[in-house]
Design a binder for these strands. Structure first.
Lengths: 195, 195, 195, 195
DNA sequence: GGGTAACCGAGACGGTACGTCCCGTCTTGAA
DNA sequence: TTCAAGACGGGACGTACCGTCTCGGTTACCC
């Protein structure tokens, strides 16, 4: 009955994570350094290296322990409503100065930073179950065929918003977001606008 | 007789650009250094600094002078055919080891690297005219409404492919690409698959 | 029955001392670290710090408890014989790979390492009584004046051998050693070579 | 006729050498660090590493370029006078707070610091020619046999003084030094004190 | 043979210096 | 005008070992 949890691990983890995310937001990924995290968190550099081998590893841990990028699945009663809410939330994450650097770092990780890319992959993979549920609700309501793949849906939705914001460098308006949702739902002609 | 262009600029520009792109492909964005470009191109480090203020500026110049990322607009006779061809070409660029690092660097530039982001923006902005033409052809054929915005269309197409490849870390099959195109054209249900 | 010495001190002292000396021999003074001693002796680092404040203190204790540098005073029947034997033993200590690092560390301690220097001083001071006795025997035999100071004698003998080995970096031959002894005994001309 | 010496090498060498020796004197060998030399000399750490691979290498260069340890060979007209002068000079070098740390570091180098040991060896080897000359003068004067080896002589003289100072930790008086010289010249009994 | 010192293991930490990489700058002289 | 060569200041890297602290567990002697 002795609950000897014997917990091991960094005592300063929280301070380190906080400092890492704050620095990422304030100075961008390139401005994020281990020494910066150390001085910001009041922790010695060696302590950070004791627990994580690189700045990406620290960042991965910080992101995993954080809910900065939480993306609740909405349930508005219609798929169109759900996707519009989702699109707004994605656009917000990717646009708000307080989260954009974090989202940007994570989305840009694919190319060159395997450690972060893993976090990104897991983050989006974990969400698929919920998105599946969202689609199931929609198909129960008869809004959509049962076979729709949540992965492809999210690729389109998230990809389009990301592309507009990060590649084109423009913040999408709500109308833009709605148009994206409608295109995904009904195709380019948006014939179902009546829906 | 007009050879006296009094051209200013580095004599070794070509060698420098080549070295920069080769290094980017071989070692990734982080492995790309000014000193590396210098030694690779047989040029002195100071020479590079004379002409470009940063590695991003060199890279921007190299990309601008290169056609590695050329993305010809297809004209297959149907919008569906055009988009399928386009999707395949995008997927190839983003997947082929010889171009993926370049595309990756450019697509990831938005967050933190203004110099590259400008190149990316210009690259995609320059294409809008051609994409506009592609859509005009389609609307003339009656395939689509005249009002369709090429920008949104490309956001969806390119964004979805990028997301699948760089964020999910999976290479899309041809069927995946076709499904994306069909969703964009006809909506999630793909009712128009017959089209 | 007086075993109740109430002895305080590290239980692992022997293992620690051994590890310290072995490491000193194998890796030299600079390669001797507290962490090295700890892992070598199977003792926790904190245990060492509990008992000694520095690596020099550990080393001093190890040397004091060791007989690696024992230098028995010979009694061959003649001063010349005694000194020759002594010279050989000194040369051996300072030359043999198994003891040279220890002797070297101790002899080099004077400059910068007070803790070791104390050990060295005590080590050589302790020997003066025996050397005094050696000289007394010689003067009883009429070989030398009674007033000869053992300290100066040993300074010359040990100093010359050390200088040859550690500064000049040469191992003295037996002839070299004999010549040193004769010079000390009879002067540079060695007029007493007949003796 | 163009004297293109094209001189290469550290521009800041002098400042670096000065700082190294000053730090050695003030803080001892262990207190001498590359970073200390850098900040003391106003030079960047990397500049030092560009030219020397270790603190011993810097120190060796500084010692070689310095005359702090200069040891002029006296010529007093008699060997006894010469040796007494030499002994005093050695004792001074090894005792004066301004030079003792330098001499100490050099003499202690044999054990563990090959780079410095080389400097020490060369320093003393270079002197042998002059010492040879001193002895030649003495043998011309009939004071000593021609065969006397300057190396052994200096081993005895320098070794005895070093041992007294660095191992026993005592500063020799002038009488002590004279006694050493006389012992070396005439043997333990010092029969020739009249000489 | 049970209690209480004395001793020890384990884990986490702040800290200094190391030696390295690459940055971006400057100066000089040659082509 | 352009370039090569060399030297430099500077920031951050990742590492080794230092010396310290706290906590909990283990001997071993003593009654």
């Amino acid at each position: 009955m002795q609950t000897n949890e014997l917990r091991r691990g960094p005592r300063m983890a929280q301070a380190i994570h906080d400092a890492a995310l704050r620095l990422l937001v304030e100075r961008g990924y390139d401005g994020l350094t281990i020494e910066g995290i150390a001085s910001r968190s009041g922790v010695n550099k060696t302590t950070i290296y004791r627990w994580w081998p690189s700045k990406d590893a620290v960042l991965a841990a910080a992101l995993t322990a954080s809910d900065a990028l939480a993306l609740a699945i909405p349930d508005t009663g219609s798929l169109r409503g759900d996707l519009r809410a989702l699109a707004r939330r994605i656009a917000e994450l990717v646009t708000d100065p307080a989260t954009a650097p974090i989202a940007g770092a994570l989305l840009a990780a694919g190319a060159d930073r395997p450690q972060l890319a893993v976090v990104a992959r897991e983050f989006f993979a974990d969400r698929l179950l919920q998105e599946r549920a969202m689609l199931d609700r929609a198909s129960e309501r008869g809004e959509v065929a049962a076979a729709v793949d949540p992965r492809s849906l999210m690729d389109l939705l998230a990809g389009a918003i990301w592309f507009r914001v990060f590649v084109r460098g423009e913040a999408p308006t709500e109308a833009d977001l709605d148009a994206v949702v409608d295109t995904v739902l009904y195709g380019l002609d948006g014939r179902a606008e009546v829906g």
